[in-house]
């Protein structure tokens, strides 16, 4: 139970670090970089591999 809580806490901390929403940016570049980092951290490597395959099939 404690382990789950720790994992959840770590997950929340990471989410806070990488979540660009609700934040304000001084440039478009900073905003896009933050959103890209957020998207990449949000999905598994399997997800991105599937997406890549989907794109290649098009």
């Amino acid at each position: 139970m404690q382990k789950c809580s720790e994992e959840q806490a770590n997950h929340d901390a990471n989410a806070t670090l990488s979540d660009p929403f609700g934040q304000r940016f001084s440039s478009i570049e900073a905003a896009t970089n933050a959103k890209r980092d957020w998207l990449l951290s949000r999905h598994s490597s399997d997800f991105w591999e599937k997406l890549k395959q989907l794109k290649e099939q098009q």
């Binding site: 934040q23 890209r36 998207l39």
Partner: peptide
């Protein structure tokens, strides 16, 4: 903006407010 998958771009929608950008 391009994602690290060839040919795929992510869409970012934001508001300008007081010289800053808010994407959420």
């Amino acid at each position: 903006d391009p994602l690290p998958i060839p040919g795929i771009y992510m869409l970012v929608l934001g508001d300008f407010d007081e010289d800053e950008i808010d994407v959420g």
